[in-house]
Design a protein around this nucleic acid. Structure first.
Lengths: 233, 233
DNA sequence: TATTTAATAGACGATCGGTCTATAATAATT
DNA sequence: AATTATTATAGACCGATCGTCTATTAAATA
């Protein structure tokens, strides 16, 4: 499963996909040196925009194509099915998102817990930027997993595990520095973080407000302090 | 918006809706004394089963009708549209669910925080009973709200508010008894509960496991203790 | 018995999602 | 230069779904 990193990374870096045919390859076999991933990347990007907003079931191929300015016939040249398309979107999103987490959680300029907070602030900024229309692709698909191909289930679980491990590492660092008690289970805490955070993102989409994100994170951090004070030796 | 309470309450009390024509009214004008809400209730019940499992967008009218063993012609006799149907489902689910909460949270045989725990245990039992296929209708619709009629948004927000207020009352009781600090904001805590709980339900559906529910509630309760210890005067 | 009302039956059209075949444009081959 | 192979586009096509529509049945009512 090769993620098309450029396409996915662009979802937050750039403005919305415009339905322009400019710069897309012309009909016919292209020259050998011209790298023509443009159309495929455009479809992935458009797909990410749609699916983070509407989920899988409610997102039609036609809408994805229209947004990208790509004709329908091209779709099944690049992807064997909507299911396969979705898997590439997941991989792409995961690559982009895990990278984003790493950028924040491995940033040694800040203490571990502040890194987590910086990620949270980043996410808040992003949600606001898109007027709370775009949520988390993995959260969306997780919610509707029973309407999806069964093969998606394990993929989604694994993606969450990857994110969870990153947070766990960050929390363990905080633990080493004595900011969380040595008795606390950082793996459990990281799971707890993602469970609640996804709930918060969903609620933020619903209420079109940052408040749920702030509410969750505030109390999550308070909970961490408790782990520290009550279990510390 | 009148909720059909019997239909909604039955969603957990009884086994799945069977496509049986038994007991449904025959064709033609029924006798005056025979109360013929059966068909409508059957449709609501079937709709709740479908939508708690698959959400709104992925649930077709035909599937709901097939499960209930009701022919298509009847649907638009009882409901003017799928949108109107959905609103009745929400009202019905809310009535059922708020009642369930009240049963637990107002049960004076137990101290307030134990009541909340008893609700959580009840929910765990229910999710397991249905093999983690059925989640929370409101959580499902909340996630896909951007694909739904815009009128749904406020309705869903209000339903959450109602549930939140019930939990808030329960937490305030605990606060009166000194189990939560007087400084803690029970309204915020109740919001925090539902944000995280919905995330946990979604994750439990995905992983087909009780673990996320337990994980969230454990840490939520630990957080409460912290509120108590650190803010208490 | 005739009329009205309650409820079911299921055809129908518009739309849309997903797939497939045909075709165009260019590169590679000879 | 003509032929073949490859890349990508174009859009027809089928089936499913949503919502509406008319017809029909059966009981109550007058």
């Amino acid at each position: 499963m090769q993620a098309t990193f450029n396409a996915s990374a662009s979802i937050i870096g750039l403005s919305d996909t415009q339905p322009k045919k400019v710069d897309r390859p012309r009909r016919g076999r292209p020259s050998k040196q011209s790298i023509n991933v443009d159309t495929k990347e455009l479809l992935i990007r458009s797909g990410l925009e749609h699916l983070t907003e509407y989920g899988f079931t409610a997102s039609g191929i036609d809408a994805v194509l229209k947004r990208a300015g790509v004709p329908k016939g091209s779709f099944y040249y690049y992807f064997s099915s909507k299911e396969a398309f979705g898997k590439e979107l997941i991989a792409s999103y995961d690559t982009f998102f895990a990278n984003k987490l790493d950028i924040h959680l491995l940033d040694e300029r800040y203490p571990p817990l502040e890194r987590l907070q910086r990620y949270v602030l980043d996410a808040q900024k992003t949600m606001k930027k898109f007027n709370f229309k775009r949520g988390c692709l993995i959260g969306n698909l997780g919610q509707e997993v029973d309407s999806l191909p069964e093969s998606y289930r394990n993929i989604l679980v694994d993606v969450f595990l990857g994110w969870q491990q990153r947070v766990e590492v960050c929390l363990s660092l905080a633990q080493e520095r004595g900011q969380i008690s040595t008795n606390a289970d950082c793996s459990q805490l990281a799971e707890y973080f993602w469970i609640g955070w996804e709930g918060a993102v969903s609620r933020a989409k619903l209420t079109k407000s940052l408040e749920p994100l702030k509410c969750f994170f505030t109390h999550f951090m308070l909970g961490l302090s408790f782990q520290n004070k009550s279990y510390g030796d």
